[in-house]
């Protein structure tokens, strides 16, 4: 880390904490502390909603995904515009009209208290599982820019907790909005640097052609067969259908997001805040993935280590005993020579490919001559991917990576940051990474505390507690969740959670949103129907995940189908089960009657 970059980061963090903490001055009532006095404008909330969703994983891992796998991850976000319109027409006005503090409070009014408690507990459990990851993931990656893991964890955990506890939701929303601006600046800075760093004779179009030839620009993925559609992680159908229900649940029933737009001065302000994401999310993810793709093209022509975490191993080999290090050194040398050979083949093939022109653009004549070149390019590319995989195996064997750590691509971005991004700009990008992490940590801290206090404590007391007591309790709960997240981040490495965050969410999101919709679609569904159908939805997704998926072989239309359903589809399944069970249960008077 260079001094100027570090100074920029420290100054940025100090400003955010100061700006957040001063928002808490004089706030004594629950509405002021939990919902920012319901005075927020749409653009501030809109930026906060985006900042809450975009974590440091989004910046670091998504560029890594663009690098290694290309742009197919974009399918994940395609449903956002459609989801936002549905939410603006449904839950946003419902929440506003009923003047609730949490989404789950609305469920008590529509169904009963157990439904509210179940929904709140589901939120608390799923969010608590994810909140440590938000700190842990960047802390691992930032070791490669020279910041020790514990420093990142303690800095992020402590600073976020302090200003969220003092400033409440106003602090969260306003600092989120500012951090989102820093994030966008950081992303565009990366894009420009990645573009400028491409060789002059390759350029942006050349880089995109190479990325296209190695199947990294697959932004419109239609698969021919329903089994493939279900089993493939990111394609047009899983994104538009599974993703739709994931985002309906995430933005419509997850307090982490609901609490941001509930702070709106009017229904219209809240609606417009969600539409910011509807317009900007897909382009933003496109640019982040494009940065990854351009970094890939950069390393086609620039030297790179055998794998991106190799420097960690080299450092240990340099300091350890020669006898113990010898077998590891031999394996690393072998990887390096394989990588060098494949890199040179890939560069030659890429240059030949560019010299001939892309067959798609050049017509049939070009296609005939470039076919072997493309095959060479892909073969060399696959060989390098294999070297990186073997490198991770080596790292695990050396005890430097946990058994579940398989992704070397997460370290591409920081490698590029430390070696290619100029001083000063690197400080901005580093601040953007911290901004992304902190802004997606403070929202769950604020909302975990709010739901724990408002839904579980205040709601179950005989008499509603005084406002000051609610604010004090929420501040204490924020401190608790802050400490929880920080401690969890230290222990996170042993559990394979990084990739699991969206999976955990997908187990409940579809079901959660469906309960809200059930109240609207089925007027007879009242009382216990709410929690019965919610439990059925989440239960069936859990049963599918742990009992059926990848375990059973079914016969469908005379053909054997080993059940293989990717996680985005869980949202649709949970959603359908809740509506079906809710509809059927509402026909039974015995379940229907107690609170009806």
């Amino acid at each position: 880390m260079r001094a100027l970059d570090l100074a920029m980061l420290v100054a940025f963090l100090a400003y955010i904490v100061w700006d957040g903490a001063r928002r808490g001055r004089g706030v004594k009532d629950a509405e002021g502390y939990l919902l920012a006095g319901r005075k927020m404008r749409w653009w501030t909330m809109g930026l906060s909603v985006m900042a809450t969703q975009a974590s440091a994983i989004t910046l670091i891992s998504t560029t890594g995904q663009g690098f290694a796998d290309g742009m197919r991850f974009l399918h994940f976000y395609l449903a956002i515009p459609f989801a936002m319109v549905i939410l603006c027409a449904t839950v946003v006005p419902w929440f506003h009209r009923s003047r609730v503090f949490t989404a789950y409070e609305y469920l008590e009014r529509r169904f009963d208290r157990p439904t509210r408690l179940l929904a709140s507990v589901l939120f608390l459990v799923t969010r608590a599982l994810a909140v440590g990851t938000v700190i842990y993931a960047p802390s691992v990656v930032l070791t490669s820019v020279g910041i020790p893991k514990w420093v990142t964890i303690v800095a992020m955990g402590t600073l976020s907790t302090i200003y969220t506890a003092i400033g409440g939701n106003t602090a969260v929303i306003i600092t989120d909005a500012k951090q989102m601006v820093v994030m966008v600046a950081g992303i565009f800075a990366c894009l420009i640097v990645a573009w400028v760093r491409l060789p002059d004779d390759v350029g942006l179009v050349g880089a995109l052609k190479i990325a296209g030839a190695t199947q990294r620009l697959d932004t419109f993925r239609l698969l021919p067969d329903w089994r493939a559609v279900l089993a493939d992680k990111y394609n047009l159908f899983s994104g538009l259908i599974g993703g739709l229900f994931l985002f309906l649940g995430y933005f419509g029933a997850d307090q982490e997001q609901v609490q941001r737009y509930l702070a709106g001065a009017s229904v219209d302000q809240s609606r417009k805040s969600l539409l910011v994401s509807a317009f900007a999310k897909v382009p933003m993810q496109f640019v982040i993935l494009l940065v990854g793709v351009l970094i890939y093209a950069h390393y086609v022509f620039a030297p790179a280590p055998a794998f991106f975490r190799a420097p960690e191993l080299e450092k240990v080999l340099a300091g350890g005993s020669a006898v113990a290090a010898a077998p590891l050194r031999a394996r690393l040398d072998e990887l390096e020579s394989r990588r060098a050979a494949a890199s040179s083949q890939r560069e030659t093939a890429a240059r030949a490919f560019l010299a001939q022109g892309a067959p798609g653009a050049g017509g049939a004549a070009g296609g005939a001559t470039t076919a072997p070149t493309i095959a060479d390019l892909r073969r060399a590319d696959a060989a390098i991917a294999q070297v990186r995989q073997d490198g991770m195996q080596l790292l695990r064997d050396a005890g430097l990576a946990k058994p579940d750590e398989k992704n070397d691509a997460d370290f591409v971005f920081t490698r590029f940051l430390t070696t290619e991004v100029p001083i000063g700009v690197a400080g901005l990008v580093l601040a953007a990474i911290f901004a992304a992490a902190i802004s997606s940590l403070v929202s769950p801290l604020n909302s975990l505390a709010t739901s724990a206090v408002w839904d579980l404590w205040a709601a179950t007391r005989a008499r509603p507690p005084p406002q000051e007591q609610v604010v004090r309790a929420t501040r204490i709960a924020t401190l608790f969740w802050g400490v929880f997240a920080t401690v969890a981040a230290f222990y996170m490495g042993s559990i394979p959670v990084i990739e699991q965050v969206n999976r955990i969410g997908s187990m409940v999101y579809g079901s959660m949103f469906a309960v809200f919709l059930l109240g609207w679609l089925v007027p007879r569904a009242r009382g216990a129907v709410g929690w019965v159908s919610l439990a059925a939805g989440v239960g069936s997704v859990l049963a599918l995940h742990y009992g059926v998926n990848h375990r059973l072989v079914l016969r469908v239309a005379g053909v054997e189908w080993p059940v293989n359903i990717e996680f985005l589809w869980y949202n649709l399944i949970g959603f359908l089960v809740v509506l079906l069970v809710g509809f059927l249960a509402s026909r039974f008077r015995r379940i229907d009657s107690p609170s009806a």
Binding site: L74, L78, L217, D218
Partner: peptide, 30 residues
């Protein structure tokens, strides 16, 4: 702008995004 017009605009944006991504993928597909 009326809420309904805003919704139409957002939905249209969703469809335009899909179209642009299809063109992008097609332009560089090999």
């Amino acid at each position: 702008m009326s809420t309904r017009r805003l919704y139409v605009l957002v939905l249209a944006w969703g469809v335009v995004t899909l179209l642009l991504l299809w063109l992008f993928a097609k332009a560089f597909a090999v």
